[in-house]
Structure formats: C-alpha cells, structure tokens
C-alpha cells in the first residue's frame, strides 16, 4: 500500500472536517457565549489546518533556505496565508471575548437564551 492511498495520508483532511463540524455544532446548539466563541475558534483552526495540509507536496522540501538541499522546494504561500489568518483570528477572538465580558457586565449572565432582548 502506498502512502497516498493510506488513511494516514488523509488524516489531516479528516481532522479538518471533524474540527469544522464540531465548531459548527457548538455555534448552532451551544447557549454559552464562551462556547460559541470556542466553536468559532475551532472552525478557524480547521480552516488553518486545511491550508497547511494543502501546502504539503510529495518529495519537496519546506522553504527554509539554510542548509537546504538542491531539490525542489514547496511554495511558502499556504504558510503565509495561515500566519495571516491566525493573527486575524486572534483579533476576532479578543473582540468577541470582550463583547462577552460586556454582555456579562450588563445582563449578569452569558447564557445566550437569557441575553436576548433584541428580537422580533
């Protein structure tokens, strides 16, 4: 059995799907605001892992020039994308958590069902 056909090769992609599904579940069915934030972070990790996994090319080296062999190197684009996305994700998470703190101060709870004054 070759590496490509084995389940191990697809493991990163299976993890991606699992992370995104768990994140979506938390986003839709959890009522705790902090858990909603965690759900979104899980989706973000899933997408980041997806990008990183796509950056793998068989027989190529990571784009690090120090002591690099003369064979082909992969394009460093996915790594650059993931770094950007992680930084953005941090900012969004911080903003969401600060809103959660604000909601807790105003309503005295972070249960999404009890913090619903805007409806209709």
């Amino acid at each position: 059995m070759t590496l490509e056909s084995s389940a191990i090769f697809n493991l990163p992609f299976i993890t991606v799907v699992l992370l995104i599904i768990i994140g979506m579940y938390a986003l839709m069915f959890k009522r705790n605001l902090i858990k909603i934030v965690i759900g979104l972070t899980l989706i973000e990790s899933g997408v980041n892992l997806f990008l990183i996994a796509l950056g793998y090319r068989k027989g190529c080296y990571a784009p690090i020039y120090t002591n690099a062999p003369t064979t082909a190197m992969v394009f460093p684009t996915p790594q650059a994308l993931t770094l950007t996305s992680i930084v953005i994700g941090l900012a969004v998470t911080a903003l969401m958590l600060s809103f959660a703190v604000l909601i807790y101060k105003k309503y005295g709870t972070i249960n999404a069902e009890k913090t619903r004054r805007l409806k209709g």
Binding site: L33, F99, T115
Partner: peptide, 13 residues
C-alpha cells in the same frame, strides 16, 4: 454589546 456579538460572529463565520 449583544448586537455587536451577533454581528462579529456572523461576520467572522
């Protein structure tokens, strides 16, 4: 804060 939380969740999703 409630409206902003909804907005940021929808936008970042």
């Amino acid at each position: 804060a409630e409206a902003a939380f909804k907005y940021v969740v929808i936008c970042s999703l």
